[in-house]
């Protein structure tokens, strides 16, 4: 599982499994920037079903309103920060 660095660009995975997931639907497939690493926390997708839970890296990811809502954004300079577990994040290469 890749470790992400602050300021790296990441994309939230767009998969839509049924069940308890702490990734809001409105952020799936959206691109943001790692704001900070929070350390490792028990995976809620296991906790929710009473299973032993793996410690999983958690990140705060910052999205611009433009990233999420496009031209519908209320104000393009505004941002949304959300906490996303590592297995929901894909690192984007800055290379062309």
């Amino acid at each position: 599982m890749a470790m992400h660095q602050v300021h790296n660009r990441v994309r939230v995975r767009a998969i839509m499994p049924p069940g308890h997931v702490r990734v809001p639907a409105y952020l799936r497939g959206k691109t943001g920037v790692i704001e900070r690493a929070l350390g490792a926390f028990s995976n809620p997708e296991q906790l929710a079903y009473g299973l032993p839970a793996d410690k999983t890296p958690l990140y705060r990811v910052r999205f611009t309103m433009q990233d999420i809502w496009g031209e519908q954004a209320e104000s393009p300079i505004d941002t949304i920060d959300a906490e996303i577990f590592a297995h929901w994040l894909e690192e984007l290469s800055d290379a062309p």
Binding site: P44, L47, A48, G50
Partner: peptide, 12 residues
């Protein structure tokens, strides 16, 4: 006995 995620899962 259960977790807050178990609560949320049942709520959802």
């Amino acid at each position: 006995h259960f977790t807050v995620d178990g609560l949320r899962r049942a709520l959802e």
